[in-house]
């Protein structure tokens, strides 16, 4: 009796994450090319950027395999400047 080697999808999960990052980047660029603007759109674009950063930290930097404080260090970094940027844009629209 032989043991079957572990099987895996033809496209690695990390490659799917890369393709998702590319897609989200093109969506962000397209909003700018279409001349779209406004507070809601800016916050959505910022949210996409923060999500992309989290994907990069988890899948490319390998933080998804880490436990404890180091697991969330990049997520915390994304939220702090991200929150301040969001606050700056909200205040700019409130005049």
């Amino acid at each position: 009796m032989t043991t079957k080697p572990p099987t895996q999808p033809l496209i690695r999960p990390c490659t799917l994450v890369y393709l998702m990052l590319v897609t989200l980047t093109i969506v962000t660029w397209a909003t700018a090319r279409m001349g779209l603007s406004g507070l809601s759109l800016s916050l959505v674009v910022l949210g996409i950027a923060l999500f992309k950063g989290h994907l990069l930290a988890d899948w490319f930097m390998g933080l998804r395999f880490i436990t404890g404080w180091w697991r969330w260090v990049i997520a915390v970094w994304l939220l702090l400047p991200g929150g301040l940027i969001a606050l700056g844009f909200v205040l700019s629209y409130r005049g």
């Binding site: 080697p5 572990p6 099987t7 895996q8 999808p9 033809l10 690695r12 999960p13 990390c14 994450v17 899948w59 930097m61 390998g62 933080l63 395999f65 880490i66 436990t67 404890g68 180091w70 260090v73």
Partner: peptide, 18 residues
């Protein structure tokens, strides 16, 4: 599907440091 080596994305081990 086909047999290919385990990538980093599916490692089971959990580490304390990055």
């Amino acid at each position: 599907t086909r047999a290919i080596p385990e990538p980093v994305a599916t490692r089971d081990e959990v580490l304390r440091y990055p």
